[in-house]
Design a protein around this nucleic acid. Structure first.
Length: 493
RNA sequence: GGCGGCGUGGCCAAGUGGACUAAGGCGACGGUUUGCAAAACCGUUAUUCAUGGGUUCGAAUCCCAUCGCCGCCUCCA
């Protein structure tokens, strides 16, 4: 059985078959760059990073396309709606484009820390204004949209499929409408394709309807169409965007093109912090820089970015995840265990007897890989896939404890760590800054001197001195470990 | 008001009709090792899956009810 994905359109887990054999286009709704990336971004983009990595592991040529929203989206549907980017720009006394640039760089830095692979293309909304205008024109020409007073609205009543993704009907929404209805619209559910700009609006472009700026949902339709085609394989995003954002994307795209817009809709669930929705006003808002530095009142310590990644992978992307200091600490411990095992395996390869891999181990590795593939094929069950990595850790440690592993065996294990833990899950690095590494040569010598002193003290049964040396080094983050043969090794804490 | 989801050991979490006498991680406890540690390994840690009914030969998994929690419906991942 190949890869099966849960398709929000239809709410079923289906066999994944791309439109073109061997090639997959993935569009992911990216961030609005008016602030630093936070835990929610981490969950979403790690989830879709895993999708892309796994598709590549399966041999697909993947075109990966998360966008940046750098023209502010409206905060509400009314005429006086404010533009989030413009509001942030005014607060920070910067041009919106400078702001977008700054936070785009910040976003990439954080995603690099989380080991998310860089996208093939990161299209910006402001770079696609002519295309957006063209799409609005098409929709007007085809009778799906109407102009009122310099703004253009999509007429939902003309598109019968509206609501098929989110399972809502236009009538229900009208009944539950909490937003003041714009007087310009024919129907409350109609949404803006193009908005007329007031003279003081900073970001505006000239269009057939006068000066204005694009509506909320247009960029995703336009950019996915431009780079991936009229029908795309996979569109991902946060579950909160299911409605109205994705529903509107479908309406615009399908009305304009007359073909299905997206074949598989994937939505990741939300994060909570200590069991509550994360929000700026709730005093539980944690961004990634705070998480990595530990500088936040809800955190007891800094966390390794990959420990955060591991925590995300420990639950399913469609389940909500609760971030708490305890959960992060537990993930950090587990992550350290994997990291230590990988480092040990790599170190031991040089000293191990030079012989081929042991057949029984090869056999065990095969079954682990099979278990891993089955888990990932089942709608990207990373929790089970990660458990395979822990089984690999146990196997590796057991073999190293026994001291009989050949270089071939250890290389086979390392290869599994690199492929499954590294290439697919992204929690195993190619290199760790550790004892013996080139950039640590000086440190290795210095710690080596301390170890020699301590060994002398131990030989004289001067344990007060030997323990003092160990404690002092620990205070600097250097852990000493005595091995059975009397040898002592060190590692970073 | 409408829509959706969740409740599994001390904590996180997978499993969603039979191989479940419930994976994995964290933690705790005991053992091996150690001068003592650390790390690693071995073992123990849920007869039970919010509660009460029901369907079934069989239910953590399906149905109904009750309680509790969360999210979306407004820019948001």
């Amino acid at each position: 059985m190949g890869l099966r994905l849960h398709n929000t359109l239809g709410r079923k887990t289906e066999e994944f078959k791309p439109l073109q054999e061997g090639r997959v286009g993935v569009y992911v709704c990216g961030p609005t760059v008016y602030g630093h990336a936070h835990l929610g971004h981490a969950k979403s983009y790690v989830s879709f990073d895993i999708l892309v990595r796994y598709l590549r592991y399966l041999g697909f040529a993947v075109k990966d396309l998360p966008n940046f929203t750098d023209v502010g989206q409206l905060t509400d549907d009314a005429d006086e709606g404010e533009d989030t980017l413009a509001v942030a720009a005014i607060k920070e006394h910067k041009h919106p484009m400078a702001l977008a640039e700054y936070y785009t760089a910040s976003y990439f830095k954080d995603m690099d820390e989380l080991c998310c692979v860089r996208p093939d293309i990161s299209p910006r909304a402001t770079g696609h204004i002519p295309e957006q205008i063209a799409l609005v024109k098409t929709l007007v020409d085809k009778g799906f949209a109407y102009e009122v007073n310099g703004s253009v609205y999509f007429e939902v009543a003309r598109f019968p499929g509206y609501g098929k993704l989110s399972g809502r009907s236009v009538d229900e929404m009208q009944a539950g409408a909490r937003v003041a209805v714009s007087t310009e619209k024919k129907h409350p559910a109609d949404f803006a394709l193009w908005k007329k700009a007031e003279p003081n609006h900073i970001m505006q472009w000239y269009s057939p309807w006068g000066w204005g700026y694009p509506g909320w949902h247009l960029e995703c339709s336009v950019m996915s169409m431009k780079y991936l085609g009229e029908t795309i394989d996979i569109h991902g995003g946060g579950i909160e965007n299911q409605f109205p954002h994705h529903e509107c994307e479908i309406a615009q795209s399908e009305a304009a093109n007359g073909v299905p817009f997206v074949r598989y809709w994937l939505h990741n669930n939300m994060v909570t912090v200590n069991g509550r929705k994360m929000g700026k006003s709730l005093n539980n808002f944690i961004n990634l820089k705070e998480l990595f530095s530990g500088e936040h009142q809800l955190l007891s310590r800094p966390y390794d970015p990959l420990a955060v990644r591991q925590l995300i992978l420990q639950s399913h992307y469609r389940s909500p995840i609760d971030f708490s200091d305890a959960a992060l600490a537990a993930a950090q411990s587990g992550y350290d265990r994997i990291k230590d095992a990988v480092i040990s395996v790599r170190k031991q390869i040089e000293n191990a007897p030079d012989a081929l891999a042991c057949a029984s181990v090869t056999c065990e590795l095969d079954s682990l890989r099979q278990k891993f593939d089955e888990a990932m094929n089942d709608d990207l069950n990373t929790a089970v896939a990660l458990s395979v990595i822990f089984e690999l850790v146990k196997l590796a440690n057991r073999l190293m404890d026994a001291g009989s592993a050949t270089a071939g065996t250890l290389r086979a294990i390392e290869e599994m760590f690199n492929t499954l833990g590294g290439s697919v899950l992204g929690i195993v690095r190619n290199e760790y800054s550790q004892a013996g590494a080139a950039d640590d040569a000086l440190l290795d010598h210095l710690v080596g001197m301390m170890i020699t002193q301590r060994q002398e003290a131990r030989a004289n049964k001067d344990f007060a001195t030997s323990d003092a040396i160990r404690d002092k080094l620990l205070a600097f983050g250097v852990v000493l470990e005595d091995k059975p043969g009397g040898e002592c090794t060190w590692r970073r804490k």
